[in-house]
Design a protein around this nucleic acid. Structure first.
Lengths: 130, 130
DNA sequence: ATCGTTAAAAAGACTAAGTACTATTAAATG
DNA sequence: CATTTAATAGTACTTAGTCTTTTTAACGAT
């Protein structure tokens, strides 16, 4: 593993990530930029990318839209609201046995999987009634 | 439902889709363009988008990479090879009961879900040994 | 069949997420 | 403190995808 230096910018970016709810890279940049205008956009993208490759955060790729990030690197599932676009964690056990089933079904060696649920969040459900 | 006209370009694009394995929009364009140079790139994207919205094909959004398309609109799962990038269908029952579990767990009303498995395809497994 | 309406197409400009590049800065380590 | 080199700032670049304008053609109505 290559040396990775601990820098102020990294701390700032990863701290901002913990303060936001499954943000996009741009959302992280906006947050960072408001308090630390000298931190560049490229740095935000680079730090998030490196942290994902480290396994210290998660990068979520949803249909129709830019990637989002989760400071919790433990594999878990997500739901996204079709209306407001917000994303929430799903508190449900991770179905590791699915991967074995896929290996048997199609001959791939399977290392991971992701599930994206789509629906309407509680807030938007309330809004629909009004 | 708005009127949708049947055009030659649509036929050409959707025919090309059936001849390719989970292609990207650009791959569909390349195929179409080789035989029908007058069909524009924008048309390929528009036709694929409309067909997805119709529900007559599937748009697959994978982590790290452009969207892919599947002429089979029936919900089903996919595996992607981390090495060559190819995508295959997974012949496994669609887990509709998962959606109910998510509704109970997080209060969303859930309408659909997608699963993306990641691993190494049989061809690349063979290549690794050599 | 052909006419009129208008959805859809062609061609190319545009947008924006993400990456690459280059000169410069600043962590880590002895 | 000096050296090494990862990381940063700033900007250019790439490209999947969309939008715009003008033109073409699908299809219901006459």
């Amino acid at each position: 593993m290559i040396l990775q230096r601990q820098t102020k910018q990294k701390q700032i970016v990863l701290q901002a990530l913990t303060e936001l709810n499954h943000p996009t890279a741009t959302a992280v940049f906006n947050r960072v930029h408001s308090e630390h205008p000298t931190v560049s956009r490229a740095t935000v993208f680079r730090v998030l990318k490196q942290a994902d490759q480290n396994g210290s955060i998660l990068r979520l790729s949803f249909a129709r839209g830019e990637d989002r990030f989760d400071y919790n690197p433990t594999p878990h599932y997500h739901v996204r609201c079709n209306i407001c676009g917000c994303v929430s964690d799903v508190k449900m056990p991770y179905l590791t046995d699915l991967e074995q089933a896929v290996e048997d079904a199609c001959g791939y060696r399977v290392y991971s999987h992701d599930v994206e649920f789509k629906g309407v969040c509680p807030d938007c459900q309330a809004g629909e009634k009004a």
